[in-house]
Write a protein that binds this DNA or RNA. Structure first.
Length: 279
DNA sequence: ATGCGAAACTAGTTTACGTCA
DNA sequence: ATTGACGTAAACTAGTTTCGC
């Protein structure tokens, strides 16, 4: 499978040109340098549940975020087995990061029995830990090894935990951005459908007008047809008939001055050509 | 230029845990 | 009080890319 560069992903495909369109959702700046926090769904990214359980556990005297290893141990771990996915380093073949983490845990005087019991024990992060991680993520959504170590030390977590948190956080960010982009495209599609419907109707009206004898008699075959670049109506040159009337009649044929395009609320364009007729 | 290994990454999955009906 | 469904977050696996040697 081909990997896609971060910059090439939908994350940066925020359709920013919608930003001036009032009816469109505001694309969120989630570039790698400054991911927006405000855009997250309050429920989905709420840490309330975490806080609740954390508080409960605290009351129960359960420290779910027991410092799993000393800083030195963490640094040892980081130096030796920093990447969970670089699991192919050992001669004896793959070794899961869990096993590696267990090694660390085992150094922390956890019996084998206890270790087996707590295998893949997931520990919710505390409110403070989550907040700090979020703040750090806002500044940069990736961490270099030094930052990772420092953050892990600050939070009392294993570097691996920090690493995983950032991985999952990036995934959530991307998922959210994809949802936003999807919504924008959906609206765009809806606008196009509406516009298509309107144009079809307009074509029908024009055909009806063309077939009506009165209109047909007035029609002198135009040598050239000029189209207003904004409203894309055809302006008939002034030969024979009063130009202003001609435009008015066109306007009558198009009672609704709807702008064209799926993103309808674009800045108005001066109808210079048609202004000439009005003079 | 090419191959290799390590590190770092993403996508997708699994699992533990909290919430709620 | 219990339970099962469900959602979410932490942790995992597999595969890809990048980079230095």
């Amino acid at each position: 499978m081909m990997m896609v560069e971060k910059e090439d992903l939908g994350l940066s495909l925020s359709l920013n040109f919608f930003q001036n369109t009032p009816n469109q959702p505001q694309p969120l700046n989630l570039t790698s340098s400054s991911p927006s926090q405000s855009y997250f769904h309050p429920k989905k990214f709420s840490i309330q549940e975490t806080i609740t359980s954390q508080d409960r556990n605290s009351k129960l005297g359960i420290d779910v975020n027991r410092l799993p290893c000393t800083v030195v141990e963490c640094e040892e771990e980081e130096a030796g087995v920093s990447s969970p996915n670089s699991t192919v380093s050992s001669v004896s073949g793959k070794r899961s990061s869990r096993e590696l983490d267990n090694d660390v845990d085992n150094r922390g005087n956890i019996s084998d029995e206890e270790d087996a019991e707590t295998a893949r024990k997931k520990l919710r992060l505390s409110k403070d830990q989550s907040l700090i991680l979020e703040e750090t993520f806002k500044e940069h959504n990736t961490l270099n090894p030094k930052q990772k170590l420092a953050l892990a030390k600050q939070l009392g977590l294993r570097p691996r935990q920090v690493e995983v948190w950032f991985q999952n956080r990036r995934a959530r960010t991307k998922l959210k951005q994809t949802e936003v982009d999807c919504e924008v495209l959906k609206r765009c599609c809806e606008n196009l459908t509406d516009e298509n419907r309107r144009l079809q109707k307009e074509v029908q009206e024009l055909r009806a007008l063309k077939l009506s004898p009165q209109f047909y008699m007035q029609m002198t075959p135009p040598t050239t047809l000029t189209m207003c670049p904004s409203c894309e109506r055809v302006a008939v040159p002034s030969s024979g008939v009063d130009a202003s009337n001609r435009h008015i009649s066109m306007a009558q044929a198009h009672p609704r001055a709807l702008p064209i395009g799926p993103w309808a609320s674009v800045a108005p364009i001066t109808h210079r050509m048609f202004d000439v007729f009005r003079q």
